[in-house]
Write a protein that binds this DNA or RNA. Structure first.
Lengths: 244, 244
DNA sequence: ATTTTTGATTTGTGATCACACTTGCTTTGA
DNA sequence: TCAAAGCAAGTGTGATCACAAATCAAAAAT
């Protein structure tokens, strides 16, 4: 019996092939809706229908309704008493609530990451920042979607180093919930002449490089607070102007 | 037109009738599974099948699969690569991870609650503690399920006062995730001669009554740490005894 | 005796249908 | 003219079916 030989042959084959994966339709729908929500493609208060989404995504209703159910449980969407589902409205209380939760949890995650990141991982983050600068220098016209995607990778690359399988899904849920809000703010930022985002990110990286957990936490909170603060001011002025 | 009279008649009817509610089957399945998970009715590593649960709950597979999907997204259950779902296994890392997250988030929630609870709300909590003592004095035989339910009400009654619509669902998710672990510990507690739970709860209430946020946080952390610490020790000794 | 193969059963996934509820508009009645 | 009733289109929910993948047990081959 040439068992060992067969085993070896299988191994060499396995080394060259890349796993094909078996993502279900439901998973794709879910990812797509997540992407859309974090990207702010849906507006707050917009109601989503199962059949409408199913048509848009070219599937049946089944994967869509399950994906919607999942998004509702993580509060990324809201189930109205009518049984229809909408993306949650923005209120002042909710903004402050989200910012507080994000500061708390993402702050803890980055503080943990600061003590655990290897020099290799820090270098990787720094490299990411470098590429980002280049891209920004090349394009005069801002590409907000690309910008947002890079920002997301930057943050989660750091959070991944905190070593907590519990905190990271919670952070993802928080991003999902604040996605629609943030996007509104970002667009307004871009109009109002955006302050330099890169500065805040460099502060974060510097703190991480020094393994200074407290400084990293503070830099992060400063970073994520900006769009929230902007949005809060905008809402407040809108409220005083139009007190409906 | 006797519009006013009709209106009045409708109001008197409305006052006597209680809303019937329109809970879906899926919601009931979801609640039932939540209850079972927090109550520790399912063992870690146990795999759940859609058809099996549907039979047990006397429904079709449809509501069950959607409820399972929701529980998977909140990490209360785990989706294996085989596409089957099981209740997550207990590991040392996960225990410490859950305890850290719970201390962080529930600690923040109770600190917020400490500054916001009205005397009326505090009195309500104290009354709850009193009833609890009575019940415990009456029954010599311990009713673990009742005990766990009361404990849950006690904690969430406090958290509800933190005024954060974002933190509370996260805490629920954390309880859902630690439910199976905790229950294992509670059973062991009961055998090993449980230390007085009531003492810890009184410490919490005392801190809340003084509006001392920091003391409340510390008392809470002490309270939730106990079963985790117990479980951690148990697992560690089991690991050294049986190093498989 | 151990491993491999084969076949039957179980299981998750997606599609489709039936039904009840909601919603918006038209028609009817005062 | 205007409010109320009625109708039609749309929507979520649950059940059922078809299908592919996984699982397990018995049988066959080494």
């Amino acid at each position: 019996m040439q068992k060992a030989a067969i085993e070896k042959n299988n191994e060499t084959i396995a080394a060259q092939l890349t796993p094909v994966g078996r993502e279900t339709v439901q998973d794709r729908v879910y990812s797509e809706l997540r992407r859309a929500l974090i990207g702010g493609l849906f507006e707050p208060n917009q109601v989503l229908t199962i059949r409408g989404l199913a048509d848009a995504l070219v599937t049946s209703t089944m994967p869509v309704r399950e994906a919607l159910g999942r998004l509702i449980t993580e509060k990324a969407l809201e189930a109205l008493p009518n049984r229809s589902v909408r993306v949650p409205p923005i209120t002042l209380e909710r903004i402050d609530d989200l910012l507080r939760a994000r500061s708390l949890i993402e702050g803890e995650a980055i503080a943990l990451a600061a003590t655990r990141m290897s020099p290799r991982q820090i270098a990787s983050i720094e490299a990411m920042l470098g590429e980002w600068d280049e891209m920004r220098a090349l394009k005069h016209k801002k590409d907000i979607d690309r910008e947002a995607t890079l920002n997301q990778s930057f943050h989660f690359e750091i959070y991944r180093c905190c070593g907590s399988a519990v905190l990271i899904p919670m952070i993802e849920s928080l991003w999902l919930q604040s996605g629609p809000c943030i996007r509104v703010a970002i667009y307004a930022f871009s109009d109002a002449g955006e302050v330099d985002t890169a500065h805040y990110h460099r502060r974060i990286v510097a703190a991480l490089a020094k393994q200074d957990a407290q400084a990293a936490r503070e830099a992060l909170v400063a970073d994520i607070s900006r769009p929230f603060a902007f949005l809060r001011d905008k809402l407040r002025s809108a409220a005083t102007k139009d007190p409906t």
